[in-house]
């Protein structure tokens, strides 16, 4: 069973819950930018939450189903049509062979997830179906989807799961997003006044942002004042401060080690909301304790990463 990419103007790749287990070789975690939306889309079609789906960014395109299917679109709010008629986001759609599901404009948010019952069935690479564009592996041939691609999907056993997942609705333009974060392991490398300003100031997401990292800029500049140290381990959500006027938050395809000091690390529970920000959106960081971040994560439940390959 398969779906054919009829048109593509956005950046679409196959992504699943990620690729833990290979970070010691320099392989990023990979996987969906908005894990909560991936889980929601999958649960709507009764797949396991971390099943592979099509992650669709920035602009639209269309899929033509070669076989009957159940599909759902979650995450970014998009103008969605089936054979030209508007259909809703966040619901399971029963599709016949030949139906065309089209994504038009992105109304809110940056990443939409198209899940199909049975899951996108490209071969696994290093334990995951996620596409890692920078090294050209995973997903469909290690590359972004383009018109004409035939994307296979599986025949899942009828799931018993009920939809219990929610994903944060991408915020409205112009509303300042609050992203909670834990103090970084070398936060003391920064002066007290630099840290105070960092947790108080407002940042704007730069257009120079992608699956590797989100660049945030602020108007107020301040001396950086952090010592240089040998490169250290990094992680998804690490808030690196390369200079005085901004920060780079490492995202799903971010490097496993890095040389810039980390003032904080975004709480896993708030990565989806940050991922859904679009250039120009304003963000403020709120410092919370690691215990609080983990409590929030346990209460959402939906963000369980797959286990590493044994």
């Amino acid at each position: 069973m398969s779906v054919t990419v009829a048109r593509m103007t956005g950046l679409a790749t196959v992504q699943d819950g990620g690729r833990p287990g290979f970070r010691a070789d320099g392989v990023p975690l990979c996987g969906a930018m908005d894990l909560a939306a991936l889980f929601l889309a999958n649960e709507l079609v009764r797949n396991p939450g971390d099943e592979a789906a099509i992650e669709w960014a920035l602009a639209g395109g269309a899929l033509r189903f070669d076989s009957p299917a159940v599909a759902a679109v979650a995450g970014a709010e998009v103008e969605l049509t089936c054979n030209g008629a508007f259909v809703a986001n966040n619901v399971a759609l029963e599709l016949d062979a030949g139906d065309e599901l089209a994504i038009g404009g992105f109304v809110r948010g940056a990443y939409a997830y198209v899940a199909v019952r049975g899951g996108i069935a490209v071969p696994k690479a290093l334990g995951s179906r996620s596409t890692y564009l920078a090294a050209g592996f995973g997903g469909l041939g290690g590359r972004r989807l383009r018109a004409g691609d035939v994307v296979p999907f599986g025949t899942a056993a009828e799931g018993k799961r009920r939809v219990s997942t929610t994903s944060p609705t991408p915020g409205e333009r112009g509303v300042i997003r609050t992203v909670r974060a834990i103090e970084g392991p070398n936060a003391e490398a920064f002066t007290v006044s630099f840290r105070e300003a960092f947790w108080r100031d407002e940042f704007t997401l730069s257009a120079n942002s992608n699956r590797t990292g989100y660049r945030l800029e602020r108007t107020a500049q301040q001396d950086h004042a952090a010592r240089s140290a040998p490169s250290e381990p990094a992680c998804v959500g690490a808030i690196q401060v390369p200079d005085g006027n901004g920060a780079i938050v490492l995202m799903a395809d971010g490097p496993t080690v890095g040389g810039y000091p980390k003032i904080g690390v975004v709480a896993a529970v708030d990565i989806p909301a940050l991922a859904q920000c679009v250039p120009g959106d304003r963000v403020r960081f709120e410092l919370i304790a690691v215990d609080e971040a983990q409590r929030l994560l346990r209460t959402t439940r939906s963000l369980a990463r797959p286990r590493a390959r044994a």
Binding site: P20, G21, R23, P233, C235, D291, R298, A308
Partner: peptide, 25 residues
Amino acid sequence: PEVSDIVPAYSSFAVHYDPLRVTSA
């Protein structure tokens, strides 16, 4: 089983774990 990756750097290393199965402490 709670640990997915142990990543060495120059003078430090990271232990990546599943926060749904074990706390930071």
